[in-house]
Amino acid sequence: MGCFCSKNTRHTPGYEEPTVLAAETPFTVSEVEALYELFKKLSSSIIDDGLIHKEELQLALFKNRNKRNLFADRIFDLFDMKCNGVIEFGEFVRSLGVFHPNAPVADKIAFAFRLYDLRHTGYIEREELKEMVLAILHESELILSDDIVEIIVDKTFNEADTKGDGRIDQEEWKEFVSKNPSLIKNMTLPYLKDITIAFPSFVVSSEVEDSEM
């Protein structure tokens, strides 16, 4: 009895077995192992503690640890399922799994809804939508008058808020995405399909062959 600890394998805090993660996500065991190599690299880029801190995610995404971005912050917050300020390996794999081309569309729609539900109210509020539009304008260094921004937000709300209660609920969101599938385009990362081929540098020798699973 007792836990099994390999002398040669020292895993990061929050490590979970690839077989467990592969069973819960679209990834194969060897793909999860490849993601672990990527995770180790990302999680030691600034603080070598085997956990991805927000600055490390920013560094990976923007090559700049200090670049703030509303949407990158939202991605971090959703990946950080335990809300403890860091992304553990299991959280990393499960969250990236949603971005896999083979992940269920329903999962992508739900994830996008949570991304846009900035204040965790269970709805996408009009003010949140306007805040996000202003954020992307600021990021893009585009200047639009407040009137134009209001028109864009109003038009979208008129189309999406079919119940007319001033907020978009999950049911309305699903319906809106079904009419505008481009809205979840950024929820699919083609790189994640066959990650072991796309990123051979992350591949390590697999202890368990997928064919044996």
């Binding site: 990158a72 954020a135 990021e139």
Partner: peptide, 25 residues
């Protein structure tokens, strides 16, 4: 334009996770 606010928002670089897979050296 037929673009809605969410289409515009989705263009943010914050959603582009491909950076995770690029060498940081």
């Amino acid at each position: 334009t037929n673009l809605n606010a969410f289409d515009i928002i989705s263009l943010s670089s914050g959603f582009d996770l491909s950076g995770l897979f690029v060498e940081n050296d």
